[in-house]
Simulated scan of single mutants.
Amino acid sequence: MRTYRANSIPPDSIAGAISYAIGQPPGVDVNELVIRPARQR
């Protein structure tokens, strides 16, 4: 369980990624959003 939590992404980071995707202008289509930790132990 410790490894999982050590590599987890904070909820506000997930929210920021989603906000970025839905905040794009009308001419931009976001088909996929892959979110992963930048650093893994």
Rank of each mutant, 00 (worst) to 15 (best):
I35D: 04
I35Y: 01
I35N: 02
R5C: 00
S13K: 12
R5I: 00
N31I: 12
Y20I: 08
A38Y: 03
D29C: 06
I9K: 03
L33H: 14
I14V: 14
I9M: 04
V28A: 10
P37D: 07
I22N: 10
R36Q: 13
R41H: 02
A6Q: 04
A21W: 04
A6L: 02
S13D: 15
P37L: 00
T3L: 09
A6W: 00
P26M: 02
P25S: 15
D29H: 12
A17C: 14
V34G: 07
I22T: 14
N31D: 15
R41V: 04
Q40D: 03
I22Q: 13
G23D: 08
A6C: 00
P25W: 05
I14L: 15
A17M: 10
A6S: 05
P25H: 08
D12F: 12
R2H: 00
M1Q: 07
I22V: 15
G27Y: 14
E32F: 12
G16T: 06
P37E: 10
I22D: 05
V34E: 09
I9H: 06
N31E: 15
R39E: 11
R39D: 09
R41Q: 07
I9Y: 02
R39T: 12
M1T: 05
L33Q: 13
G16S: 13
G27F: 13
A15N: 14
E32Q: 13
V28N: 13
P11M: 08
A21D: 08
D12S: 13
